[in-house]
Structure formats: C-alpha cells, structure tokens
C-alpha cells in the first residue's frame, strides 16, 4: 500500500532528528508539541488552505516568527499571538527546529 510513506517519515523523524547542541527538549517532547501545529498548518506542516506552511523555512526564520507572535509584535497575526504565549523559550526553539528539520526528510 502506498501510504507506508508517512509512517516511515514520522518514525524516522523521531529517530533521526538531530538533538541540536543546547536543545533542552527531547525529540519525543518536540514531536508532541508539533502535533498541535499541524491541526491548522496541515499534515507535516504542509498547508492545505489559507494558513501558511511550516515547511520550507529555516529554523531561524520560524523562531523569529514564533517569538514575534509571543511578544505581540506580529500585526497580521490572530490566534498565534494567544497560542504562543503558552510556550516557553525551550519549547519555541524546539518547535522551530522540528519543522526546519522536516525539510529533506
């Protein structure tokens, strides 16, 4: 069956995601945090509609956006301003890294 693909992707992501120097979260913890994001941004962070993709960005760019949401400095944002205030620095960094690492996998 054709959809062995996503299984491989997720299991491999858990196995192979680099635990970047200084990362404070286990990759399993990051995977649970990231599970929430895809509910709006699309499976594996690939957009299915008007909400932008999380794929195809560097960790640096994602981190900058997530921090701007949390600081209330993203004038175009709606729910992201409210949601990001629920995550600490380490979680925000882990999320940015998680979606940056999805690319090429």
């Amino acid at each position: 069956m054709s959809s062995a693909f996503p299984l491989n992707r997720f299991a491999l992501a858990l196995l192979l995601a680099p635990l970047a120097a200084g990362a404070q979260l286990r990759v399993q913890d990051a995977s649970v945090l990231a599970g929430t994001c895809v509910n709006c941004h699309g499976p594996e962070g690939r957009s299915t509609g008007a909400i932008p993709s999380l794929r195809g960005h560097t960790a640096g760019y994602l981190l900058q956006r997530l921090r701007a949401f949390r600081a209330g400095q993203a004038p175009d944002a709606t729910v992201m301003t409210r949601l990001m205030k629920g995550y600490d620095d380490a979680q925000v960094e882990a999320l940015a890294q998680w979606f940056a690492d999805q690319e090429g996998r």
């Binding site: 709006c40 699309g42 499976p43 957009s47 299915t48 509609g49 008007a50 909400i51 709606t78 729910v79």
Partner: peptide
C-alpha cells in the same frame, strides 16, 4: 479584516485537521 481572516482560517483549519 480580522473577522474576515478568522473566517478564512476557520475554513483552513477544517481542511487541515480533516487531512491530519
């Protein structure tokens, strides 16, 4: 604009979570 964006995002949420 804010209300319109949230109407669009609601549609997009439904598509995304259904796909998930």
């Amino acid at each position: 604009d804010y209300r319109a964006a949230e109407a669009r995002y609601g549609e997009a949420w439904y598509a995304a979570i259904s796909a998930d």
